[in-house]
């Protein structure tokens, strides 16, 4: 198997029409531990800029865990630690002098369950800009963020109502608007549609295609159709039972262009998974 990054260089040389993508995030030989228990091993992946990268795989394979490492949200878990190197524009994310708060302002996150704050719709959006001392016109920023999240028309007359008054799908788009209001470079999405109905799911997927012009997106999904619909690249994670390790250990099985992963994967386990034989 050729190193994916290398493959793209080779491809860009061989095929001048293909655009060489800049790498925004890079994991190199990452192992993730909870205490002494190794949950994920040997993850090396390059996340290209202005693309949607999907993480797929059976449950318990560590794809959400890896995602949360990219903006250091796992720091909230006391026993968590990471071995290996994760870089953002070449900068080590886990260097001792890196401020996780700064990391999270550049790498935003949308969660599985919509989690608006118990505040008004307006204040939900304005929260992030306020904490990072945004100096510009807040009304304008709120409107732009809501428009980009395709929610403006639905909420423009009730900005002062609670975020909880919205439907589940609207709440999730509110959370996306809240995330992009901070103007991050990367948006991490942890199964953003798993709690939504099909119509809301479709809206969020369309939204992702819009956002990709300005943002880099990583999405964790259980839904393989979703990965084929939205993702440019797909990483397939798998898990294996290791004797004496105290549970399953997740690992990155294969990473490639989405089309390649679903039509002509290199690994037999990837083929089994995408054809629905397990997972």
């Amino acid at each position: 198997m050729i190193e994916p990054g290398l493959r793209r260089i080779v491809e860009s040389i061989m095929n001048p029409t293909s655009i060489a993508n800049d790498v925004v995030l890079r994991a190199k030989d990452c192992d993730i531990y909870y205490g002494a228990y190794r949950a994920v091993r040997d993850v090396s992946v390059d996340i290209p800029q202005h693309k949607v990268t999907a993480f797929i795989g059976p449950s318990g394979c560590g794809k959400s865990t890896v995602l949360r490492c990219f903006n250091r949200l796992n720091d909230l878990i006391e026993v968590f630690h990471l071995k290996g190197k994760m870089t953002y524009h070449g900068q080590d994310l886990y260097a001792a002098d890196v401020d996780p708060v700064e990391v999270r302002r550049r790498i935003g996150m949308v969660f599985q369950k919509p989690n608006p704050f118990p505040k008004t719709i307006y204040d939900n959006i304005a929260y992030g800009p306020r904490i990072s001392n945004y100096q510009g016109d807040m009304d304008e920023l709120v409107e732009t963020s809501l428009r980009r999240a395709a929610l403006w028309d639905e909420v423009k007359d009730k900005l002062q109502e609670s975020g909880f008054s919205l439907s589940g799908g609207q709440q999730q788009r509110l959370c996306i608007a809240r995330t992009i209001a901070v103007q991050p470079e990367v948006v991490l999405m942890d199964e953003p549609c798993s709690a939504l109905d099909p119509i809301s799911t479709l809206k969020v997927e369309e939204l992702m295609k819009e956002l990709i012009q300005d943002y880099t997106i990583i999405i964790v999904t259980h839904n393989m159709q979703q990965a084929t619909r939205v993702a440019d690249y797909t990483a397939f994670f798998n898990a294996e039972v290791v004797e004496g390790a105290g549970g399953k250990v997740g690992y990155l099985a294969e990473f490639d262009e989405t089309q390649k992963i679903f039509s002509d994967p290199v690994q037999p386990e990837t083929r089994d998974y995408v054809t629905g034989r397990f997972g």
Partner: peptide, 18 residues
């Protein structure tokens, strides 16, 4: 309080005391 509130806030780059 649901843990999602805290995660949501940290995820937006808020500090602990923020």
């Amino acid at each position: 309080l649901p843990p999602e509130l805290r995660q949501g806030s940290y995820g937006l780059g808020a500090t602990r005391w923020g």
